[in-house]
Amino acid sequence: MNIAYLVNRYPTVSHTFVRREIDGIEAAGHHVHRFSIRAAPEDLPDPADRAERERTAVVLGRALPLLMTAARGAIGRPGRAWRAWRAGGTMTPPTLRGLVARAAYLAEACWLAAAMKRADVRHLHAHFGTNPAAVARMAHLLSDIPYSFTVHGPDEFDAPRELDLAGKIADARFVVAISDYGRSQLCRWVDVALWPRIVVVRCGVDLATIDEAAGVAEPDFDFCCIARLAPQKGLPILLEALALLGQRGIRPRVALVGDGPLRNELERGIERLGLGGQVALLGSRGGADVAAQLRASAAMVLPSFAEGLPVVIMESLAVGTPVVTTAVAGIPELVDEQCGWVVPAGAAAPLADAMARALATDAGVRARMGAVGRGRVAAHHDAHANAAALLKHMETA
């Protein structure tokens, strides 16, 4: 079966779970056509992502072919184009900017519908319930190719009405939540009759690939934090927690792997709090180096305010490293006191206490906690098993 995947920007360092999902589907004998609305970054650190970029078609790659395809689609099938345009009105605000976004979605959907028809695609799956799901819905209305989409959160849960999650779910053959918590949030916005359409397929990791990864870790760090440097990750709270630990005479070193819009703010916070010798901003790293940094740490710390269910927690537990994290969204479905330390979000003192407990915990106990976590990942977050579960839904659709 020919299957199409649509992501807003693919591949990126934070979307390796999509690549693993595609690998699992193709391992079952199907072919996946990759589509990205925007071009992937040029500076991808992981060789597997760089190879994936070459396999991915970019919807917004060239303006003239996009506009010509959109015009042909609208003129050739005006009734379907009108249906798609009307649906676009429920997914964009009634402003000039919203009108521009609506027109852009329709053009992208026309291009995607034509590309899928040429490839004899039988099913379209989008990741994220934001603009990828909007374009997928409109492409479905233009082509009759069934679609589904995966909702990760938290962005979708912050604006369910503005994104018209209810309309997207109603038109989809099925919708995927990555946790039970995520499914509960989607069920809030649709009629009870549509609840069976919302299924849970968890994100996964490839344990064999992680075990074989031969990366390099920066030495002499007690903790690592693998995160996009964005407000929802709560990283300024981590700096506050380190400052509180310093008042107790505890000065752990933290390797912060990732990049994003808060980098300058974090650099200023590190300087202001006198943490220059404790926190290193290492930037983005490839998967092998991330696995090595996780293995070299006493624990991985992630003080998020809002999440879906972070894949990096799965990766940390997969290498046997327990985690210090917050009780938000789907995280408590994977992490508890048997494999980590879970604290309230937004408060520096509980985070500092948990980090101190992690440092004081015997290495053998931490290893046993990591082993419990790895067992949970193997049971519920195996990439190939979860890809097979998703594929069954696609085949039924």
Score class of each variant (00 low, 15 high):
Leu141Gln: 13
Ala159Arg: 15
Asp206Tyr: 01
Val176Tyr: 08
Val190Tyr: 05
Asp211Ile: 02
Phe128Tyr: 10
Cys203Trp: 02
Arg188Asp: 11
Thr130Ser: 04
Ala172Pro: 04
Phe128Asn: 01
Leu141Phe: 03
Ala213Arg: 00
Met138Cys: 13
Leu194Ile: 01
Gly182Thr: 08
Ile210His: 05
Ser143Leu: 12
Tyr147Thr: 11
Trp189Lys: 06
Arg202Asn: 11
Ala208Cys: 04
Asp158Tyr: 14
Glu156Cys: 05
Arg137Tyr: 01
Ala208Val: 14
His152Asn: 00
Asp164Ile: 09
Ile210Trp: 07
Ala193Met: 03
Val205Gly: 09
His152Ala: 00
Phe174Trp: 11
Ala213Met: 01
Phe149His: 15
Thr130Asn: 07
Gly153Gln: 05
Ala166Ser: 13
Met138Thr: 09
Gly167Asp: 07
Leu165Tyr: 06
Arg161Leu: 06
Ser148Met: 15
Arg137Gln: 13
Thr209Glu: 13
Ala134Met: 09
Val190Gly: 06
Trp189Leu: 06
Val190Met: 07
Cys187Tyr: 04
Pro154Asp: 11
Asp191Asn: 03
Ala159Glu: 15
Ala166Thr: 05
Tyr147Asp: 12
Arg161Ala: 13
Val199Trp: 07
Cys203Met: 12
Val201Arg: 14
Ala134His: 14
Pro160Leu: 01
Val135His: 01
Asp191Phe: 01
Tyr181Cys: 11
Thr150Ser: 14
Thr209Phe: 01
Ser179His: 04
Gly167Met: 09
Ala208Thr: 14
Asn131Gly: 00
Asp158Phe: 14
Ala213Pro: 00
Ala172Phe: 03
Gln185Ala: 03
Thr130Val: 06
Ser143Arg: 13
Asp180Met: 11
Ser148Gln: 15
Val200Pro: 09
Gly153Asn: 03
Thr150Arg: 06
Gly204Val: 14
Ala134Tyr: 08
Phe157Trp: 08
Pro196Gln: 02
Leu163Gln: 07
His152Asp: 00
Gly182His: 11
Ser143Met: 10
Trp195Ile: 00
Trp195Met: 01
Ser148Asp: 12
Gly167Lys: 10
Phe128Pro: 00
Arg137Lys: 11
Ala139Lys: 09
Val135Arg: 02
Ile198Ala: 09
Arg173Phe: 06
Val135Thr: 03
Ala134Thr: 15
Val200Leu: 06
Asp164Tyr: 09
Ala133Gly: 09
Pro154Glu: 07
Thr130Lys: 03
Val176Ala: 10
Glu162Tyr: 08
Asp144Val: 10
Asp164Lys: 09
Tyr181Arg: 10
Arg197Val: 13
Glu212Pro: 00
Asp211Val: 01
Val201Cys: 07
Ala208Asp: 15
Tyr181Leu: 11
Leu163Gly: 01
Gly129Ala: 13
Asp164Ser: 13
Lys168Val: 04
Leu186Asn: 14
Pro146Trp: 05
Thr130Ala: 03
Glu212Lys: 01
Val135Trp: 02
Ala193Phe: 04
Ala213Lys: 00
Ala126Asn: 08
Ala213Asp: 02
Val176Asp: 07
Val200Tyr: 10
Thr150Trp: 04
Arg137Gly: 00
Tyr181Ile: 10
Gly167Cys: 09
Asp206Phe: 02
Asp158Gly: 05
Arg188Pro: 03
Phe157Pro: 02
Arg173Met: 06
